[in-house]
Design a binder for these strands. Structure first.
Lengths: 172, 172
DNA sequence: CGCATTCACTTAACATGTTAAGTATCTCCG
DNA sequence: CGGAGATACTTAACATGTTAAGTGAATGCG
């Protein structure tokens, strides 16, 4: 009995609620989520074939780029939260894709680096990954892509330091 | 602001890897992820105060907008996968924020709708939520925001139908 | 009518997101 | 020197993401 509107574009506006709010599908978080999903959907199958998740791949890439890093630094680079990173590192270490050794100067810190096997795995994934990225760039347009990246960066900047306690000074 | 203590052992040059790849932090998925996180970071505290997660809030908003919907349709609207939605609906139903009843015409389908309590909860969250969105818009700029949304939409479009098998001929 | 398929979910299983605690170190100041 | 507090992680607990399998209800077709 319910034929759903196949096209979300036009305004069938079914009985407006008391709380109007913006059109749901146009909220910024939603747009970002959908765009990202559209992109990631391209990469996941290839990564999966190599036994890697998106996050594991991020970590390997980050490590390959910076050679060796403390866990906290790696978390920042790969944009993962500490707890997630802890779990993933445990797994990657078990698979011998990374190596870990506690720093001598500070026993709390541990230096993480990619192993030979890790490098090998990356080498086997990278070509496909790059090809996919190239196709995305081709479809969307290199210029627009750069523009988009710029805007995303600006967005991030304009929201930097708005969240929790933020500036002021009367903190402590 | 990158201040990590460089490894004194091999001194200079982070020793370029055999697999160069693009600068990690500039990959599109990363940019999208960071931008989205910067945005969501603003909303989460408020939602949390009301006992809602981001996804639960998405579902309530979607339901408020479309009045009642089948689970599959709701999944599409709120951009959630079936399994996630199943779990969340079970929870929201337990909290009496939504109502569910199986369709008479097709026993497989169930129609989901927001309850009075759900509407009340939304009404209590919406003002703060809108205020936050307004502040984001102010900071980033309304025009740029619209531009960004457009580009994100285009990106999604240009990648539509690239993932799985697809092609062959005309789909429906 | 009978039954293989398809459909609309739901469960299951594993990985990560997210927040709060816990643990071992390290720092600093009295 | 010692203990309070800060650091760098790690665990824990709960919610969601993601893929695969399961369940019950419609459909299509011989």
């Amino acid at each position: 009995m319910t034929k759903r509107p196949a096209d979300p574009a036009n305004g069938s506006a079914p009985a407006a609620r008391q709380v109007p709010m913006r059109d749901f599908s146009r909220s910024l978080p939603m747009s970002l989520l959908r765009a990202r999903e559209a992109v990631m959907r391209q990469f996941r199958p290839s990564l999966r074939e190599h036994g890697l998740t998106e996050q594991q791949w991020r970590i390997l890439r980050a490590l390959a780029a910076i050679e060796a890093a403390e866990v906290t630094e790696l978390a920042r680079t790969a944009f993962l939260l500490g707890p997630s990173l802890s779990r993933i590192l445990r797994d990657l270490e078990g698979r011998n894709l990374i190596e870990r050794k506690t720093a001598k100067a500070d026993q709390r810190r541990s230096m993480v680096s990619i192993s030979k096997e890790g490098v090998k795995l990356m080498a086997s994934v990278a070509p496909t990954s790059e090809a996919i990225y190239a196709e995305i760039t081709r479809r969307f347009g290199a210029r627009k892509l750069a523009e988009l990246q710029d805007m995303l960066g600006e967005l991030e900047q304009s929201l930097a330091g708005l969240g929790a306690s933020e500036e002021a000074s009367a903190e402590e």
